[in-house]
Each structure stands twice: as C-alpha cells, then as structure tokens.
Amino acid sequence: MSSNDILLQVEGLTKHFPTNNGVVKAVDGVSFDVKRGTIVGLVGESGSGKTTAGRCTLRLIEPSAGRLMFDGVDLRTLSEREMRVYRRRLQIVFQDPYSSLNPRLRVEDIIGEAIDTHGLAKGTARRDRIAELLSRVGLNPDHARRFPHEFSGGQRQRIGIARALAVEPEFIVADEPVSALDVSVQAQVLNLIQDLQQSFGLTMLFIAHDLSVVEYLCDEVVVMYLGRVMEKGPSRSIYAKPRHPYTQALLSAAPIPDPKASRQRVVLKGDIPSPMNPPSGCVFRTRCPFAIAECAQVVPAFDTVGPEHQVACIRHGDPEVISQGQQL
C-alpha cells in the first residue's frame, strides 16, 4: 500500500486527563490508518475512548502525545492560525442532533456559518449553496428559514450532515450519528451517509458501538477497549474471522437480520474497569474468558493474522480462541 493511499495516519495517539485523584487514560497509544475514499469504523463499548480518539484526530481535543499525519502533514505541529486552513478539510457530525444545533439560529445560518467563516460564498450564491445542500440531504430547501425545534431528530441530523458538507471537506468524523435516532430512521440516515460518501469521494471515521451498523457501512474496522486498540483490519476479514476475544464478544451481541438465525453469545463478566486504574498487561484480561496468568504481565503487541488484519492478544492463535471466532 502506497503512502499516497493514506489520508490520515494516527500514530501512538494518547490523551490523558489529569484529575485531583489521578490521571484518566482515555486514549493510550492508539494507531491506525484511514485510506482515501474509505470509511473506517471505530468501535467499542461506552468508555472505550473511541469518541475522545475521534475528536483528537481533528484537534477538537488536544492530544497528550502521538502523531496525526493528515495528507503528509502532522496536525499537532500546526499553530491555531495554520490549523484554520485544515478546519475546512476536516469536519465532524455529532452524536446528538438536538444539542449540536444552535436553537437560536435558523437552519440557513447554521449551515451558512462555516461558509461565511471560510469566505466561500455570499448573497445569492450563498443561498443557492444552502438550498443545494438541504436538497442533497433530503430536506426541503424552502425550510431554510425554520429553527431546529421545528424538525424531527432524523431531520436535525440531516441538517448536521449538511453543515459538515458546506465547506466541501475531505475527511469527516461521524461520532455515533445514528445512536440517538429511532431504528426506522437510522437506516435512512445510514443510506444517506453511504450515498454522500460515494458521491463526494469522502474519507470518513465512523464511530459506533453497534457492529451491525459498522459491518453495513465500513471498509475497515478498529476495535477499541479501555483506550487501546484490540484488533484492526478489513471489515470482511474481522467479521469472518474475529481473532480477539473482545471482538468476538461484540460480534456475538450484534443482531442478525434473519429471525431464524442465531449465534452463540459470548457474555463478558464484570464491567469495564476505570481508565484511571487500568489493569496491568492486557487491559481486557479482567473480563476475558480466555485470560491466563501471562496476560497480567505482558502488554500484547500487534500480530498480523491476515492481509492488513492485526490483533493484540497473546492467545489469538490458540485453538479455543480461534474456535470461538469461527462459531460466530
């Protein structure tokens, strides 16, 4: 794979939050690549650090350490003034369609704000651009003068997507954009995201906890747990042969669209530990059904188990772990 194929390269991304009682290790040495024109799914339970990692890639949250190579430039080396140029190229769609839109602004001003900031259009050209964006996301352009409270949750999320597209970005972080929506609306928004990604040639980091959504939408998957990456690789490879016990557990809980089909459920014991005091060695070991004494001593390195498919588990090659993945 050529370096020119990679738009975003995340290396050793770390974000620690100091508190009065210690340090919260929200993201702890995360690395992954996002190829141009693809969608990478960043998945994990609540508390896994995926949202913090996503916002760090845009420098909406300043990382504690690591490199963010975007199109060959390390974003962490840029001043705030230099970063303004990249703000147009990097956008985000937030999780909550209710709190992410300013209730005091009309839709035309919500979408037009970024257009004004970057001086992309004025007057008639600005109004035409906003109307075009509303139409593109499936909303009536005549509703540009309305306020957010006059729209449903799904419609508000479409407004958020239109806002992100207003400056013609190259890369979008979609932070659980359908988790707050009704199931019937989720499919519509997912189809919209897929259509827009293909139409505009966008590169996306799609954050989610629902692996069935990620399977439908994403080309590659990065599985996070307690601030670290457990497994990463092509979607088809990870869904066909998950090699990390945590990935296997997540997949076993994902719904199957066939009412007659079933899969063996992998039930994890206990709750996710505190990021202020993560377990030694493999951070997943306290809930892992295959953990052995060595797991407490060794921080597992990534092993390659298939084309671009890597897993951080010292037992990933053991027959019982492999068998568990094959049964899903």
Rank of each mutant, 00 (worst) to 15 (best):
L8C: 01
F147A: 01
T304R: 14
V222I: 09
G41A: 11
G54C: 05
P275L: 10
T286V: 14
I6K: 05
N140H: 08
R163Q: 13
S212M: 10
S184V: 07
P177I: 04
R36N: 11
D33R: 10
S64L: 10
I110S: 05
V223S: 04
P307Q: 14
P273N: 10
V229Q: 02
V311T: 10
R59Q: 07
R287Y: 03
M69Y: 01
V266C: 00
L190Q: 03
H309K: 06
I92A: 12
A312L: 08
I61L: 15
P275T: 10
G54V: 08
I110A: 03
K260R: 15
A291S: 13
G29H: 02
G154Q: 06
L268G: 11
H316A: 11
S79Q: 08
Q9L: 06
L196N: 00
V321R: 01
D195E: 15
R156H: 02
Y239G: 02
D219Y: 13
T286D: 12
M224R: 10
G66W: 07
G47A: 10
V223E: 11
E231I: 10
V73R: 12
E231G: 05
V34Y: 09
P257Y: 00
G54R: 00
E108V: 14
M69L: 15
V93G: 04
T52G: 07
D318R: 14
H309T: 10
S280H: 08
Q197L: 02
V223F: 12
E80N: 14
L120C: 02
I172K: 08
Q91P: 08
V34K: 03
R76D: 04
L133C: 02
K122Y: 00
L105N: 07
F147W: 12
L105C: 02
S2I: 05
D5M: 12
L211P: 03
A301N: 13
V43A: 15
V10D: 07
C295V: 10
M83P: 00
Q188Y: 05
G47H: 09
S2R: 14
P278N: 07
K260A: 14
A261M: 08
R67S: 14
C56M: 07
E62S: 13
K260C: 00
P103I: 11
R146S: 14
G41N: 12
L58E: 08
P18W: 12
L328H: 07
D71Y: 06
A261N: 09
A253R: 01
C282N: 09
L250F: 06
Q326P: 01
G325Y: 12
R265Y: 07
D33W: 03
V229W: 04
V173H: 05
V321Y: 10
E220T: 14
Q327I: 12
S79P: 08
A291D: 06
P234K: 10
M1T: 09
S100E: 12
R36I: 03
A312T: 07
F206K: 09
S199V: 01
L75E: 04
E150I: 00
L60N: 00
G201T: 09
E150D: 05
D219K: 01
S3C: 00
L75A: 03
F284S: 01
L328P: 06
I322Q: 12
A291K: 01
V24E: 09
P103F: 06
Y86H: 11
H16E: 08
G153P: 12
F200S: 01
